[in-house]
Nucleic acid binder design. Structure first.
Lengths: 207, 207, 207, 207
DNA sequence: TATGAATGAGTTTTCATTCAT
DNA sequence: GATGAATGAAAACTCATTCAT
């Protein structure tokens, strides 16, 4: 009763905005799943709309074009990768090596629980050199990752836990390559890798 | 003049068979190039025929379907990978480590000279879990590669050049992962990797 | 304070009716402009609503359908043509020939200042044989125009200013044809006509 | 029997080329008819293909796009207008006035027999200021017509049949305006005009 | 009254494949 | 063997209209 007309409108507006976001999100999620299942090659707007439970015209009400929607899937991926998976909490006072191991294990976890994440990422990775809209997003992702590892390596050297002759830059690159190779191998061959063994080899290199 | 009619026909037939093969080969090559340039996503039979300089109907005379032609591109890839690149001749009496290094360098060479090879391979790799026709071919390729490395590792251990505690199986897998990661990274980011540095790290692991 | 509730409502109602009319008018005007700019062929309800600054749903609140709105644009056109342009005031005691000349000049004026008027009219004219709703409106417009000219011609003959052997009916038709041809030519070719010269020829025919 | 292989091929090629042309022509004709019947506003590729008795994909095999096909309809119109109608043969030793009259009568004839010609022309005329592809074609048509009339007028003056004070340029324009007005009036109102009367007025102007 | 969201029916265009020659 | 022409099925996208609020 004490709400003015304007406030009610705002309220309404906010609710609509939320519903709008949910619809958009459901379309992005549907597209994401379909890319994982069938690949970008077989992605169809019709299928996306059907999975999201809406009319194709509704898809185009929320996204200007298929490419626009795909762009939002890229954004969604970036957002997912920007938050660590819930199951592998970073220990409070973790050593640099703990953090490297934690990184490997969280990727192993994600590869096991949400392999689509890496399937879709690979699709975009392969498309990225041909797509000016995807490239910068993935580059940013890689750079964030690289800087994250470099920091750990620098800390590890300073604290005397890592080999003193390590170059943070190229060590980061090497680790990223190993992890990219591991994920690419696993999603393409379907064969689960022994990350524990991989970690042992990496340990030999770093410590 | 002393050739019989039949022999002339045979001759002609052989010539025809050769021309036939050339046509097929040129279509496979055209498809291969277009996959590298635009991805499987944008591969069109019309474009393939146009690049090969023939009519679309001709394409379908030689290949039952688009999938059939793609299958031949996979075969072509396998064949290319079965022969080492000309520039990196395996030394006659190479040590196991020489051979590992040679393998890295030949991949580096190919990545530099014919990156399409790895682009197309990655396209197929990503498609393979969804494609029953591609999967066995790539699996065979991986297994051949793995057994090649395992042999080297076994030799290296026997000859005392490699660490005695190495497991050929998992060492092969580790090396393959590193090389897959390196190629995937290079073709998706466009950034040339420092294989020399990579080799130094691998040396530390093996020797 | 001394107004009853009912009177207030009436007041409100009248205000609402006015606002309602303004909304309708702004939508009609937007449609009119868009027809002139892009043609009936490319007229879109969305564009109309956008130009009028309202939601598409609002357009359909005020007009049952697109055709309904177009009908109102026709009405608007008729209304505009029923009032002479402000700049060419009919002289108080004009001779028949003065009035003919004045008619030519007012059309020239309108073609210069508001060519859209004739563009939209032509769109409707071309559509009219296929549209039972437009046809009677344009027919009425033509008949009003024809009767207006016939009256002048009759006056001109009676007053001895015009040739005695003129037939008001066919003279009216001839003048209308000339003016239709002139406007159609000008809006389709974009080239401004020499109405002064045209008038001289007409003078020769009438006087 | 005496034809070489090459000649047979040529023959075949020519036959195919002819069939190709016929198909294209039938599509253009179907489009032309539908524009006359329903207007550019309601022209649908589906309807065109259906009327030509082919699949929609066939339409796109012969014409890159709808606009492309419309362009060919414009060309077709130009071609039709470049040849005089068969029924009104130009007299061998016609005087300038004969030729003017002949022009009026041939337009009257065409308006009666093939009114679509002028309906479609008007559609394009109205579209022309907004369409860079149509504009030059119609301009060329107008210029050819204008120069044709100017020549007659010049001849008429020289031969003393026409008034000496006529300006060929503006006389041509005046005649074109009258004829454009006549055709526009007739196709929009559906009312057949009295060309004989029109000619009498024109005679008064010219002679 | 007004609007954001949704939609059925349709629009042009594309694509792998086939057919007659 | 090869090709120009043709096509069914599907693709992305559009549009006037409606509905819940």
């Amino acid at each position: 009763m004490y709400e003015t007309h304007k406030e009610q409108d705002k309220q309404k507006g906010r609710t609509r905005a939320i519903q709008n976001d949910e619809r958009r999100r459901s379309l992005v999620l549907a597209a994401y799943q379909l890319i994982a299942e069938k690949g970008l090659e077989h992605l169809r707007t019709r299928d996306i709309a059907a999975r999201a439970g809406v009319n194709i015209a509704t898809l185009h009400y929320h996204f200007a074009s298929k490419e626009d929607l795909i762009g939002s899937v890229v954004d969604y991926l970036l957002q997912v990768f920007s938050t660590p998976p819930p199951s592998i909490p970073e220990p409070a006072h973790a050593t640099p090596w703990d953090r490297i191991r934690s990184m490997f294990l969280s990727i192993e976890y994600r590869l096991r629980v949400t392999p689509e994440l890496y399937i879709v990422l690979s699709e975009f990775g392969l498309r990225s050199p041909r797509s000016p809209s995807i490239q910068p997003a993935l580059k940013k992702l890689d750079e964030g990752w690289s800087s994250y590892i470099r920091q750990i390596v620098t800390d590890g050297i300073q604290q005397g836990q890592f080999r003193a002759d390590l170059d943070p830059e190229s060590t980061a690159k090497a680790l990223m390559i190993v992890l990219k190779g591991a994920t690419y191998h696993q999603i393409t061959s379907g064969e689960a890798l022994d990350f524990a063994h991989l970690l042992k080899e990496v340990e030999r290199l770093l410590l």
